[in-house]
């Protein structure tokens, strides 16, 4: 490469950069505007949904609506207390089933890389894609039919099956954020693998574990289809109540549905805020 040709190449590059400057500036602005529009468009439904639910639901909401048991149609003063406690019980039970199993499975996936781990990971992905109504039928066949009874346990089982694959993959992701070098640091101190898993991997991943599991929980709280097959009455869970009352023509039933929807929304919101605070406190309190 001669000096002269290098110089002329520099001139060429400079000229091209200068010439295209206006065009590049316009494309940049356009792209920015497009992003802004997309951002607003994606938030708009959420805002509308919140506004609509709050404005319709707030009219119904009262202390008695929360603490009173449902009354037969036509009798005033009824509430949704059974649906609230039912939902809480079902979700709580589902968490007790799903969280430990998911954690152990994720630990297994984190530590092993063999064929069994690959098979487990694959089946988790398949399970995550199974429609929730099929999981409902499965719980019906497995727990309702043999026991001749609808039950919160059957509903919780269905929700647990629904949450498991999401939790497993979220937990494994969280553990993978704990780098291999930390795992090795534990091993190099003479620790056994199980101990490193508990003290280094789980502890380090705790904030991420909490946030990851929250997504699965939020998904399960809002599920209706698995409950259709496992609960005897609509007033046994909030989503079921919204589904049955919301599709009725009577204004009173519709109002109940809106009120319940608002309570459910608040429930999910509260759950996310609580989990965020928990994750934040855990990561701060480095004990």
């Amino acid at each position: 490469m001669t000096v002269a040709s290098a110089l002329s190449r520099r001139d060429l590059v400079r000229a091209a950069a200068q010439r295209s400057l206006t065009r590049r500036r316009i494309t940049g602005r356009l792209a920015q505007a497009l992003c802004a529009v997309a951002a607003v468009a994606s938030v708009a439904p959420l805002v509308a949904l919140l506004y609509y639910t709050i404005s319709r639901g707030a009219q119904v909401l009262s202390w008695s609506f929360l603490v009173n048991a449902p009354t037969p149609p036509g009798i005033p003063g009824g509430g949704i207390s059974t649906a609230i406690t039912g939902s809480a019980e079902i979700v709580g039970l589902a968490l007790v089933i799903a969280i430990p199993i998911a954690l152990l499975a994720a630990l297994f996936l984190f530590e092993r890389s063999g064929r069994l781990a690959a098979a487990l990971r694959f089946s988790a992905d398949v399970l995550a894609g199974v429609p929730s109504i099929i999981i409902g039928i499965f719980a019906y066949a497995l727990l309702v039919l043999p026991l001749h009874a609808f039950s919160n346990l059957a509903a919780a089982f269905a929700l647990a099956v629904l949450m498991l694959p999401i939790m497993i993959r979220a937990d494994e992701e969280a553990m993978r954020t704990i780098a291999l070098d930390l795992w090795e640091a534990g091993i190099a101190l003479g620790a056994r693998r199980g101990r490193v898993a508990r003290s280094v991997v789980l502890r380090g991943a705790l904030p991420d574990l909490v946030t990851g599991n929250l997504l699965a929980i939020a998904r399960a709280v809002g599920e209706t289809a698995p409950l259709l097959f496992t609960l005897a009455t609509p007033v046994a869970a909030m989503t079921l109540l919204i589904y049955t009352d919301g599709t009725q023509a009577f204004p009173i039933a519709q109002e109940t549905a809106w009120g319940t929807a608002l309570v459910l929304l608040a429930f999910v919101l509260l759950l996310s805020v609580a989990a965020k605070i928990a994750a934040w406190r855990i990561s701060r309190r480095a004990r």
């Binding site: 780098a179 070098d181 930390l182 090795e184 640091a185 534990g186 190099a188 101190l189 003479g190 620790a191 056994r192 101990r195 490193v196 003290s199 280094v200 502890r203 380090g204 705790l206 990561s283 480095a286 004990r287």
Partner: peptide, 23 residues
């Protein structure tokens, strides 16, 4: 190790004694 790798979820004290606890 080549890169410093203290356990991030632990305090200074917990880091130092972690190996003892493991053992």
């Amino acid at each position: 190790f080549q890169r410093p790798n203290p356990f991030p979820a632990m305090s200074v004290f917990e880091n130092v004694v972690s190996g003892l606890r493991f053992n």
